[in-house]
Amino acid sequence: MAAGGDHGSPDSYRSPLASRYASPEMCFVFSDRYKFRTWRQLWLWLAEAEQTLGLPITDEQIQEMKSNLENIDFKMAAEEEKRLRHDVMAHVHTFGHCCPKAAGIIHLGATSCYVGDNTDLIILRNALDLLLPKLARVISRLADFAKERASLPTLGFTHFQPAQLTTVGKRCCLWIQDLCMDLQNLKRVRDDLRFRGVKGTTGTQASFLQLFEGDDHKVEQLDKMVTEKAGFKRAFIITGQTYTRKVDIEVLSVLASLGASVHKICTDIRLLANLKEMEEPFEKQQIGSSAMPYKRNPMRSERCCSLARHLMTLVMDPLQTASVQWFERTLDDSANRRICLAEAFLTADTILNTLQNISEGLVVYPKVIERRIRQELPFMATENIIMAMVKAGGSRQDCHEKIRVLSQQAASVVKQEGGDNDLIERIQVDAYFSPIHSQLDHLLDPSSFTGRASQQVQRFLEEEVYPLLKPYESVMKVKAELCL
């Protein structure tokens, strides 16, 4: 049975990233139509530049190519590739079939990587351009969430054990800070992308030097003109047959890092959902379990974690691919890159769409948070109580021993009897502590235990987050809708 299948058929496997999760716009960027249309555009740009620099290419040939950029006979191309065992030459023939007058000058002087690699770089750039505003929107939604809850005390956790208090907004800023680093890295790697350009079979530009009869300047002009037509500021000066596969490492490393950030955020949300302090959106008709109707599973956060793990592992592909590119190139890269580049971007696209949807509907339960604080705060307040007693004339050592005994009794009630923490009640009825009984409410005010959390939130948002989001103001209103 021949390899390949009808990918629109229910009898043929289709990647869930495309069929179930990723956005239509990201799927289109990695589609065959987008790819092969870009090949034709690159052939047109090459012909236009070659004509401008004096090669015998007519206006009629150029116009014929322009008129057929979208006229792609995919069936013919597939048949040609089956016959020739070469995808680029299959599309040269297919393009030439609908451009008979231009057929002889299509791909003039070029090698397969002229269309293959340059198209990949265009796709990487455009895919990054799709991700950047999506990530900015996630940051914006979380920034709104953090600002609104900047002063809401909550129990902090280290080692997932109760620690000092923080605020809900401050905790959210930990998430935002990681995503801001990801946004900066995505922008950097996007701006650092260079075009492969017009380089020939081993990167020496020998074929173009021959076409222009040894004119170095025209060869350099050709490279520059096509690079500018493709919208790049610069091209690699040095290439082998391909652009260095280190570029793929750079791009997928940034995406993998984004995956790590999203995994951490969504894990926190899942843990908070278990504590009943916070939940992701839950639709009115949504079913959490087929057997347990009360369940409210954090399905979206779980999906993000599941896909983020996949995204983090994909960076190993370009690392290994770059390491086995012998001399000017081997074909070890080809099949692998067809999979890992598309999957990385479709996965990143999915987790950003999902995280935006989550961040637009996060639900906080202040009463649950308050109750958990009441359970733990008495123990945390013991040092403040000791200091207040010393100020009232008591002995630190005597007070410490009193607190120690009462704390152990209260802990026994919590752990052995399943009761509430009654340390404060014990202190309130103990005559030894009568000098500070009137101060206990103040000493137990949760806001006095959150330090500068709310001020940190305000400063972080104003100095770091809002300036970073400013270039994306025009796209901030787009909502994230999930079908599944």
Rank of each mutant, 00 (worst) to 15 (best):
A2R: 14
H7P: 11
S9Q: 11
P16K: 12
A18V: 11
S23C: 14
E25C: 11
M26C: 04
M26F: 05
F28V: 07
K35L: 10
F36I: 15
Q41H: 14
E64Q: 11
K66R: 13
S67F: 11
N68L: 08
I72V: 09
F74V: 14
M76K: 15
E79V: 11
R83N: 13
L84F: 07
D87S: 00
H91G: 09
V92H: 00
H93A: 15
F95V: 07
G96S: 09
G96Q: 04
G104R: 12
A110L: 07
T111I: 00
S112N: 03
G116V: 14
D117L: 00
N118L: 05
D120Q: 00
I122Y: 13
N126K: 11
K134L: 14
A136L: 12
R137S: 15
R141N: 10
R149M: 12
R149W: 11
A150H: 13
L152S: 06
T166W: 03
C173Q: 03
C173A: 11
L174K: 04
Q177V: 14
T202G: 11
T204G: 14
L211S: 07
E213V: 11
H217T: 13
Q221N: 10
T227G: 11
A230I: 04
A230Q: 01
F232I: 00
A235S: 11
Q241H: 00
E250F: 07
L255S: 05
G259E: 03
S261I: 04
D268L: 03
L271M: 09
L272Q: 13
N274L: 07
M278K: 06
F282G: 13
I287Q: 02
K295C: 04
K295W: 01
N297L: 06
S301I: 09
E302L: 07
R303T: 04
C305N: 07
A308R: 02
R309S: 06
L311G: 02
L311C: 01
M312Q: 10
L314N: 08
A322H: 14
Q325R: 02
F327M: 13
D333K: 00
S334C: 03
S334G: 09
E343H: 13
F345P: 03
L346F: 13
D349S: 11
I351G: 02
L352H: 04
N357P: 03
K367I: 04
I369Y: 02
Q375R: 03
V390I: 11
S395R: 05
E401S: 12
S412A: 10
V413P: 01
V414I: 15
Q416A: 11
G419T: 09
I424Y: 14
F433D: 02
S434F: 09
H437N: 07
Q439W: 05
D441R: 09
L444C: 09
L444Q: 11
S448N: 15
G451F: 05
G451Q: 03
A453Q: 00
A453D: 03
Q456G: 05
E463Q: 11
P467V: 13
L468Q: 15
V475L: 14
V478E: 14
A480V: 13
C483F: 09
